Structures are given as C-alpha cells and as structure tokens.
Simulated scan of single mutants.
Amino acid sequence: MKIDRLISIIMVLLNYERVSAIKLAKMFEVSPRTIYRDIETISLAGIPIVTHNGVNGGISIMQEYKIDKKLFTVSDISTLLMGLASVSTTLSNKEIIGTLEKVKSLLPKEQFRDIELKSNQITVDLTTWMGNKSFQPNLEKIKKALSDSKYLLFEYYGVNREKDKRCIEPYKLVLKERNWYLQGYCTLREDFRVFKLSRISNLEILESTFVPREFQAKPLDGSGWIDKRLITTKLLVDWSLREQMVERCGEENIEPYGNDKFIVDFPFVEDDFGYNILMGFGDKCECLAPENVRIELINRIKKLLHVYGN
C-alpha cells in the first residue's frame, strides 16, 4: 500500500463530489479491489467516507467534513505543474508524464485555462543541448535499483584515472550543476561514497537485494574536501562574462573596472578542472593573481598553441 496513493485519493475526493471506484482504479492504475482496500484504510484513519450505490453511485467524503476542499490555490497547482514539468525534462518517463496528467485532471474546469497559462510561464529545462545517450538508460536503472533496494554493479574511473569495479547499495540520486551524482554504500570501501555518473560505465542491476541501513545524505556543498582546496583568484573579465560571474561568485565579489570590464574574486581549485574553467573563458578573462596560477595558465596556453601550431 502506497501512502502517496492514499493521499492522492483523498485529494481527488476533496475535489469531486463523487467518484466511482472504477474511475479511481484507472486514474491510479490499480484494481478496483485495491481502491476499496485503500478507501477502508482512509476510513479507519478517521476521514468520513460515504459510498453511494446505483448507476450514479460512487465514493465521496462527507460534505460536513471540516477540510477546506480548496486546499490548493491556483498558484499552488501552477507551482506543482511547473515542478513536475521541470523534472520531466531530466527524468522523462511514463510515471512523471502520468503524474502530470493526474494533477491536471484535478483542476476545476473554470480555472483550467488560467492555471495552464500560469504553469507554462516558467520552464526549467536541465537537459543539455547535446548529451550522452547512455545517461537516460543509466538513470532509469538507478531509479529502479533505488525503488527495489537492489545492488548496483559498475566500473568506476577515479580521479587518479584508475578503473575498478564497485558494488554499492544505492540511496540517493542528485543533480548538481549539470552533473549527476549517486550516493550509496560501497561494499569495497565499506563506507558511504559519492559517485559521479559520468565516471560510471557498464552499469547493471543485480538480482540480490539489501536491507537499507541508516543513511544520511552527504551535502554536496564541497564541505570537507573542496573547501579545503579553495583559493581566491583575482580576475579581470570582460562585461560579456558578467552574468556567469554573478552566478558563480555573487554580486558582492564583482567590482567595476573602467567602462566594460570587472575585477572578480573568483573561487578556484588548483587542478585540471579548475584550470579548464578559467581557460574556457578565453580572451574575455585574465588572471591577475596569485602569480603561480597566472604562470600555470600561461604554460597551458603555450602547450595549447603548440598543439594547434603544429
């Protein structure tokens, strides 16, 4: 029995005067017998359920029951639809599409157009223009393993470029700064670890299941590892990069310099990834300090020039 289905049934009954068990069964993709069991559970929880026999019969909540049937405002439902639509761009599957349609089916007819208009005013699309075609299948495998508490087996490239096999208990999937991360218990390291999906290959779900252990999600804010390596660089950047700098550094770390440039205090980790970020800004950015970072950038630019010079 799913608690989310019970809550959804209550919401349907609060929005409609009377709904048949068959209609509820179709809406939630279960059998009428399951719906009747759910209705019994809802009734035992203290919510007064009324059943009506006959051609126009169905299930309803007693009219005098003290719950405001306008539990969701137009703004609330618009926000729900925007959130679901945003998730569907990244985890597009039948479940989310079905959920979108179910939420839409709850809308009062007289407010449908207004809510649909508001929900379409903002779109959050987290997908890339061109991406790895294997990501979506891997995401679906991970979601299934999370749902069924099954082990995941895969090959993983570490930061040292070495590849080893990992078997983990998956616990959480996280999308952060356009990268997917999987948090789980690694049987090799006998500890909780975070795995970047772009470093995972040959992913498969094992038949064996595990008993979920106590899990506390690791904050992906760099605490404990990135923050210890962070230094501040001073950059001279062109106006065209201002938006990117505001997103990465915050308005308070940007100062005007002349008519079309800015001085930026930029957080930086001195590794390949960090240098690639700075070099990605091209000729619109110059590193002023510290001196060792500036020198390393010059050396990397010379190597790049040598590659293209040949």
Rank of each mutant, 00 (worst) to 15 (best):
L80I: 12
Q63S: 12
T73W: 02
F262V: 00
P48A: 05
L152Y: 00
G98C: 07
R300H: 02
V246W: 01
G250W: 02
G282T: 04
L188K: 14
G250F: 03
R189N: 13
T79Y: 09
D271A: 03
M11K: 13
F28L: 01
A289D: 15
K196P: 10
C287P: 02
K234V: 12
S8R: 06
L13C: 05
S147N: 14
S78Q: 12
V293Y: 02
N259G: 04
I295S: 10
R199T: 04
E243T: 02
Y156C: 06
E101G: 08
H52I: 15
I77D: 13
K69G: 13
A45C: 13
I97E: 15
L81V: 00
Y157Q: 14
F210Q: 02
E110A: 07
I35M: 03
T90W: 05
L173N: 03
T73K: 09
I7Q: 04
E204Y: 00
F281Q: 09
L241Q: 07
V50Y: 02
P32F: 14
F281I: 00
Y157V: 10
N276I: 00
I142N: 07
R213K: 12
V307L: 10
R242W: 00
I205N: 00
E110F: 07
G184T: 11
Y65N: 04
R189C: 11
V264C: 02
E286H: 04
E243C: 01
E162G: 03
W129H: 15
L100Y: 07
K196E: 05
F266C: 07
I205E: 08
E155S: 15
S86A: 15
M279A: 04
I298T: 11
P219M: 10
S201G: 04
R37H: 14
L71Q: 08
S60K: 05
I168A: 10
K284G: 00
D114E: 15
I295A: 12
T232P: 04
T187I: 04
L44N: 15
K163D: 02
S119I: 03
C186W: 02
A85C: 06
I61L: 02
G280H: 06
K26G: 06
G309N: 13
Y171P: 12
E17V: 10
F268L: 06
I39K: 03
M27R: 11
M245N: 04
S92F: 03
G57M: 11
D238A: 11
P267G: 05
S60G: 14
I77Y: 08
R242Q: 11
L197S: 05
K118Q: 14
L203S: 05
V103Q: 10
Y65C: 13
Y181R: 03
Y185W: 06
N120Q: 14
